[in-house]
Nucleic acid binder design. Structure first.
Lengths: 402, 402
DNA sequence: CTGAAAGCGCTAACAC
DNA sequence: GTGTTAGCGCTTTCAG
């Protein structure tokens, strides 16, 4: 198990593909994998020729049809697979994309990872997952993954603003780093984010149109997003209603339990709010639970709007009105920033039919022109506009007006 | 970006750590990383010596204190990082652990991934994530990850019984493969799973003790788990009550929406059940919602028990009584089966204080002796016994007795 | 105590 | 058309 131990193993040259069992009787694993050298020896050509053939090398270099056929045949029936490690060592991309996420358990980020994973796969990339969460020494992530440069690029999922050391080290990364749903301003790191201002504004406009005036806010998800969504709330309130009622902003951590706590706090205010905008669905679900438990009827007595449209949102009682963003497009945009457009270089050796890159995948993209978050200085930020999904948790205010 | 392009880059020998910008103005990335050769040149020794020193080589091989100091100093202030690709090429482990999961979006598997990720990190491993879900060509996972042998081992999270091609290919994998929460029988693949029978039995005993007799079952999560938990339900019912009332088993897919559908179907039965055992919390949550929406009071009119103890379970209304398994221990067991016990080989170069392997991490392990699933033939199966968590969704049956 | 040399598997310039 | 050579960064005998 120690590094290098394999080098001293008996080689088993002759058998090639003979199946073998590991010491402890595990029936998995085969003999030494077939290399180019094996194929070269077997077919009586040189390694370079094999390489050229197996890689559809610059087609300008002609290869004898017979040689090509023999080599391909040999490769096929010895089950040849190129060693990506050797390729990577020569400078080829590792086809690995690092993803640092703070909490996989947050339903929003679970969805985010899935979106990123799907988009990565379209580009033949795999995701290497790290979570900053639950690890005392955040910087450790880097030692194993960034500085180790096994990845072609790094994606930061969620706000890492409270992990200064991570961000510091990231600045020194040797590969591109892109932030996704990174609420806070990150100098020098290109970012893809949802237009929080627009999302909150549409939520509040919706409520105002329903006659609500006493609209409260529950903030969560530390740092960046809280700031942006909260600021957007204040801004929209000022603009539409002239002020933010005191005590109408509750800040808690991003769990349903805390959403419930925030709800209770809100119910203490007078006048009591008729609507709540939550900065995440997770919090909104907490508000809903609080209402259910305390007998406040939603939406009759209280309207609730969330943000994110997590799967649970359409399933709560009542179904949550929320703000949805184009997850797939955002993931695609981030990946493109990190590693470039999709491509199909390697031929498919597994018999799987590859889907070609479809430009339609990208035409839903709608960066918000002229909205490049001025205060972040030189960072490139692509903002995507979310849309309001109206479900059952919002309703006209009982007494129209205040 | 093209393979080999790096080789022709200007070397920038002198500056070593000087920051530079990439062509497109991205401020991330540095000059060529420091290699052993650089350090060798700088300190005037050979690469082998550098290697020995930097790896605390067989301490039997003495190194001049002066040389060692110089080399270490050079390595430190040029910020040397070993190239894991080069090491791996020589046979060192890649420290990458593949995880194939069918649906990250399922809260149970989100938690599972987190558990695996945490345990992997204790062993200095990173997780490469693949999902079988939402990908037409399941076998593709292999092309990028198995046959590519970038991982030292593969973990299968969840039941892949319906992906025959994947399992087939897996049999040929060159690295150890271990199944986690893989309900169905998998010849030849070592598995770690929860003792479904024991979990369901404790749920049913609990209900029976509360006076319930009309206990229904909602099954989900295809294949393996459904079979095991459903079979356990039938078995326990027969043993404790003598029979399974007809129509009391509802099989749906594993979503809250389907849980609700199953609930409605159950309410059509006569006599109507007084309790429901759901094969997952996700389904149980659906049952709870159905009850809420249709005005059936839980637990007064209907007791509900789930399985998995996902985070939401303690937060539902009412809080869900459920079956919890030792996630961390199970993840650890699977990883151990795959790559062996935790170890600390490499010295820490990042200034982070490493935590030593703590044997206490493993003493909660309680494989179920003598319960090694006879019918699976020769596969090694480690079963972990779950425990019942009683919360608010279960209550004494209204009319004691039938 | 240290260095030279070979080689992991693959690729690419440069012959012939 | 195909082979030779060199080398990616690191480890590891084997000789000094």
């Amino acid at each position: 198990m120690s590094p290098g131990s394999r080098a001293t193993e008996p080689h088993n040259e002759a058998t090639g593909r003979s199946t073998q069992e590991t010491a402890d009787g595990q029936p998995i694993g085969r003999g030494r994998p077939t290399t180019m050298r094996d194929i070269a020896t077997e077919t009586g050509v040189s390694r370079s020729t094999v390489s050229r053939i197996l890689n559809d090398a610059p087609l300008s270099v002609p290869i004898a049809a017979g040689t090509r056929a023999r080599v391909l045949a040999a490769a096929r029936d010895r089950g040849y697979r190129p060693n990506p490690l050797a390729r990577a060592l020569r400078g080829a991309p590792t086809m690995l994309l690092g993803a640092i996420v703070r909490d996989i358990t947050d339903p929003f980020f679970a969805g985010a990872i899935e979106a990123v994973s799907v988009e990565a796969r379209k580009r033949d990339y795999n995701i290497v997952l790290s979570h900053a969460h639950a690890e005392a020494t955040e910087a450790y992530v880097l030692a194993t993954m960034l500085e180790a440069r096994q990845c072609d690029a790094i994606l930061l999922l969620g706000d890492m603003g409270d992990q200064p050391r991570l961000l510091d080290d990231l600045r020194d990364a040797r590969v591109p780093v892109v932030a996704l749903w990174q609420g806070s301003e990150l100098d020098l790191i290109p970012a893809v984010n949802v237009d929080n201002r627009s999302g909150i504004a549409s939520a509040i406009s919706h409520l105002v149109a329903l006659g609500h005036r006493r609209i409260a806010f529950v903030g969560g998800r530390l740092l960046g997003d809280i700031r942006e969504r909260q600021a957007a709330y204040a801004e929209a309130m000022i603009e539409l209603l002239g002020d933010v009622p005191p005590g109408y902003v509750q800040l808690v951590s991003n769990t349903p339990a805390d959403g419930e706590i925030a709800f209770r706090a809100l119910m203490q205010q007078s006048p009591v709010p008729t609507a709540v905008v939550a900065s995440t669905d997770v919090l909104a679900l907490g508000v809903l639970r609080g209402a259910l438990v305390t007998g406040v009827r939603v939406p009759d007595q209280l309207s609730v709007v969330g943000f994110d449209d997590i799967p649970m949102a359409s399933f709560s009682v009542p179904a949550l009105t929320t703000v949805r963003m184009p997850m797939a497009e955002m993931a695609a945009a981030a990946i493109e920033l990190a590693i470039g457009a999709p491509r199909r270089t390697d031929r498919d050796r597994s018999g799987v039919v590859e889907r070609e890159f479809d430009p339609a995948d990208h035409e839903h993209e709608r960066p918000n022109p002229g909205n490049d978050v001025p205060e972040t200085g030189r960072a490139l930020v692509r903002l995507f506009r979310p849309e309001l999904i109206v479900r059952e948790s919002t309703h006209a205010a009982d007494p129209p007006g205040v």
